[in-house]
Design a protein around this nucleic acid. Sequence first.
DNA 1: TTGAAAGCGCTAACAG
DNA 2: CTGTTAGCGCTTTCAA
Lengths: 340, 340
Amino acid sequence: MTKRHVSLKDLATELGVSVSTVSRALKNHPDISPQLTEKIKKIASERNYTPNPLAMGLLRAQTRMIGVIIPDIVTHFFASAISGIESIAKEKGYYIVISSSSESMEKEKESVENLIKSRVDGIIVCLSQETNEYSHFQKLIDNEFPVVFFDRICEELNTPSVIVDGHKAVKEIIRHFKDNGCKRIAYISGPSHLNISKNRKEGYIEGLHECGLIFQPELLVECNLSANDASLATKQLLNLENKPDAIFGINDTIAFAAMKEIKKYGLKIPDDIALVGFTDEFHSTVVEPTLTSVTHPTFLMGREAARLFFNSFEKGPTYNEKVTLPTELIIRNSSVKRKH
Amino acid sequence: MTKRHVSLKDLATELGVSVSTVSRALKNHPDISPQLTEKIKKIASERNYTPNPLAMGLLRAQTRMIGVIIPDIVTHFFASAISGIESIAKEKGYYIVISSSSESMEKEKESVENLIKSRVDGIIVCLSQETNEYSHFQKLIDNEFPVVFFDRICEELNTPSVIVDGHKAVKEIIRHFKDNGCKRIAYISGPSHLNISKNRKEGYIEGLHECGLIFQPELLVECNLSANDASLATKQLLNLENKPDAIFGINDTIAFAAMKEIKKYGLKIPDDIALVGFTDEFHSTVVEPTLTSVTHPTFLMGREAARLFFNSFEKGPTYNEKVTLPTELIIRNSSVKRKH
DNA sequence: TTGAAAGCGCTAACAG
DNA sequence: CTGTTAGCGCTTTCAA
């Protein structure tokens, strides 16, 4: 491309005025005569002038770009959150730059570094499942660099965050299982250092308690959030002498994997084993039986995260709002037993 | 954040040398004495110096950012393609900026404009399903601005592109249906102006012909690629006096929707109606029956698109490689009739 | 009412 | 071997 963009200088020489005059005219500076302003604006639009963001960025020391670090982009939940972030970034005239951590803490650290190198104005992050050490974020926060967490957050860090009320959601699930006659309710959790695992586990235990059920350690298994590992975890549960009659997966991916495994064992869902997931992806309604799940307001979560981000710009480094979004249990066929 | 990044100037004053000396030392210019170079590098790394990409961008008139325009980000196929693009962009030290068209031509045009405004070095795009007019890309190509298409491409435009061999893939599907005793094979297509619709339709008609079946216009229905519209299209087929005994959906989303609808009608898959999709999303193996589908090398497609993009940098505006990727039919339960 | 000049961070001639 | 200067595109004092 020969001469890609026209600059103020181009316009200035064409009009025989100075660059500063053009600059001023374009932003309606009162000092410039209305006629000149008019004339300048006219040819600016004719020549498709658009300000060079690089130059502006240099000047203002900001890029109007937000770094977004997520475990991966192909999982519906993350994609949807990104979509939410993008929607409000767009309104504000910001761009987002996405960087996947691939669920690896090492790559997450790299992402942070690269994003900083590219001078993003701040970052919005959902932690990798491996992340159990937060110095790479602590450093930024200490430097008053805007950091917002969503979903998988670090609770100790003094920075805005958005989460979902997993505690309450799981209690609802347990109640629902109980209402359907389940007595041995298993929970396939994620890595125990993750806040989502912790919250949901608390909800699990408290829920059992409230339903007069006792917590059986062998019914709480952990997996690394991959479908494969979830299958293993499910097998472990199904090989129990005293099998569970209900399984709750920490997300829908886990629940889908569990579903496959249960079918492989020749057990019936929901009659032999009731099943509930979390996140409510589109496919919950396609699988057989349709999957009962907790709706996770994914898009909204992204929007909230972005909102907090822009707030932290305005309100400064002391700003530290924590948002908790509600969930809703959507009951489908996988958890409603016909006889009990 | 007080003083976010150190500059060459900072280092220069600290060391009592000039900026250019620092600049040169950092890139191992032979003119600078080894000792000085060593010393400069040492404190540069101590101070965490990283070059300011804005300044570099201004100078070189390039941002090292690639604009990526996709219909949406939550569909697995697009997310996966982005992932592929990102993987090779990263290798080259480029960032990608994603912009969704939401399947709207209007928004696609906006995306192009915004991306150009933000001075990306080129764009990689998968057309919105509405796009039937290409002036917004033509303009860029005329200006020798790098544009690469993937999957949903404009065949007339003289620019690199990556597609999948839909023609061949569909012929394989028809053959497979035939082998399973199907005689009335329906095809739920997308908007007819899309290249993917056209290719697959050709494959459909040719495939029927090769199998000694005749093309029945009522068995070819179009939908707008949404699950909703696909349900409608399916209904239309199921309401036919002479129902189809096989349905092929242009992608898995369509196939899933068709599956729901067929079940609702109380028909059995595959025995009453065999079903095949396209793209092979993860959930193909979770639905019941498991969905026969064509694997679409989504990640690879993104990588190829990115590769072509960088090629077009090196080889200049005449470069116009067209890549066609192979597919593979993965046979599962939705298409294998037990009796025929 | 308009222009000149400096500076954001960096590189690349051009001088010494 | 190292420093000076100009310039990428823009805004913003300071002068006129």
